[in-house]
Design a protein around this nucleic acid. Sequence first.
DNA 1: TTGTATGCGTTATCAT
DNA 2: ATGATAACGCATACAA
Lengths: 332, 332
Amino acid sequence: MKKTNSIPTMKDVALEAGVALGTVSKVVNGLPVGDSYRIRVEEAIRKLNYQVNSYAQGLKANKTHTVALLIPNTLEPFFASLAYYINLSLLKRKYRMLLCSTDYDSGLEQEYITMAQQNKVDGIIGLTYNPNLIVEETTPFIAIDRSMGPKIPCVASDNFAGGQLAAEKLADLGCKNVAFLRIGSSLTNEPNKRKAGFENGCLARGLNYEMKILNDGAAFEEFENFLSDHIHAGRLSFDGIFCVTDSLAYSIIKALRRMNQRVPEDVQVIGFDGIRHFGNKDYVCSTIVQPASEIAEMCVDLLLQENMPAKPPLVCLPVTYAYGGTTSELYK
Amino acid sequence: MKKTNSIPTMKDVALEAGVALGTVSKVVNGLPVGDSYRIRVEEAIRKLNYQVNSYAQGLKANKTHTVALLIPNTLEPFFASLAYYINLSLLKRKYRMLLCSTDYDSGLEQEYITMAQQNKVDGIIGLTYNPNLIVEETTPFIAIDRSMGPKIPCVASDNFAGGQLAAEKLADLGCKNVAFLRIGSSLTNEPNKRKAGFENGCLARGLNYEMKILNDGAAFEEFENFLSDHIHAGRLSFDGIFCVTDSLAYSIIKALRRMNQRVPEDVQVIGFDGIRHFGNKDYVCSTIVQPASEIAEMCVDLLLQENMPAKPPLVCLPVTYAYGGTTSELYK
DNA sequence: TTGTATGCGTTATCAT
DNA sequence: ATGATAACGCATACAA
């Protein structure tokens, strides 16, 4: 008695085609098989609508062709674009992607890693914030934007160069007195190098600069107060501002306009990330663009590279400047 | 001779704890087991760092706790938020999510479905554009925004009501002559009902209205021409415009300002979707907000509901109006 | 209650 | 070149 029409397996195909199980397997995997057999098997496959079971394959081969991506969310545009490009890079290599939105939650990050390992993923790519994540050595891991120790490669933009570039651009565009504004995780991570790079650039170009650094939970008002304190007789004493992200730049620009400061006429603003409206339209502001697609490709490369002699501990990819309406058009 | 330190299995744990394989399985799955045994097994698990193999579980149980999400990309904010909320809803139910960015490519959509089925996902949620996708009946499928036949439930916003709401809002806000602008897939899908709803609302409220409908590949200029044609002596003959998406509204608003039309003083604009800057800040424009989180929850519910008597063919979820600076503040 | 044995769907080894 | 068979890690029905 046959099984009631459940999902067909290789055995069913073999039966239907009147050949042995092994033969079907070979046909499915493109191994050499006599033509007459091949044809019969292929017909049976079509007839039964057979599909291989990746789970059985994975169990046997101990290889799942699946990678987990840990990322805070897909709502913030930079994360969203990483998710998109990593998915693409994986697709090119016939890999599937498990998306794990961690919501900046350390516990969730750890949970997802456990899940991924139980799911026998071939590797994990993670942009995480938990400073003491436990990740089994047996699962290859690539970190984005935050070094997690010498054994785990970290991929990031060249944040230092980006900060420097911002300073140079502002100098080129005629600024004399600039400011750096930052808010965000105080964790040691790559984006924190933006400050150092900017400082470096200011010194090299003889710009006067001030810094206002806020920690994660701080109120945005502190920036507004900082800016107000630098307005004398209606005039802001800065003619250029570098914000650690486009998101911050966006808020700052709105605040500046509320204070009757014109952007870019009175004060030029540069952000960081390269965010575009709706993901594909114009830049939100003049910005240092992170190469999201290259970061994605590099992560996937490093992760799946089989015989890597020694994985590099840190890879920094080049950033570029893009005009986005909040700087003078001089170097547009 | 032992296996060289590869990944530990239940067998290894059983050996280490000096119990039978089945006992370990029970402990892992929380089935009743004598306390002394349980403790020994748990210790062995900790010692060996054992993790269950979901692939073996899945193979056995024919259940993978995995769902595939097909979506064009995560770059466009509305898609990004769907991905985020669906991930969240799945997480609550201990399900994993395979993200499949299809890039609006029919072939890719079909490929991903095949992949998902081979991967034995427990279900698929898809926002797709291929009009003749083949999806095995054996895999539960939930469609977003486009009906794919009576056997496949479709979840969407109440697009008709949304269009109507837009018309009513414009009327309430004092508009007399309005326009509806649309560009996008001409495929029969739920969002196309926005037009009908808007028309309905205009008629009900006695608004004069015009429509400008473009197909997917059309040049944006056609809208600009349309608007120019309605400017006489510097004055636009519309005092209200409803755009089919916030994305379009954004572009239209920019175009209007280039034409020296003030928004919202001269002409009020309402979009659709409820997109916020950077995913979590202010609305891009006054808009009809889609309940992304409710859509997500509904999709997951319908997909995983075990003993659903009859799955509804179409579920429309309520939308709301949100002020976003491009309408009069009257009903803010 | 605990242990044993079988099978899930596939691949690979081994005879034939 | 093809067919039989074992093994992957786990869950479970059944025996002890």
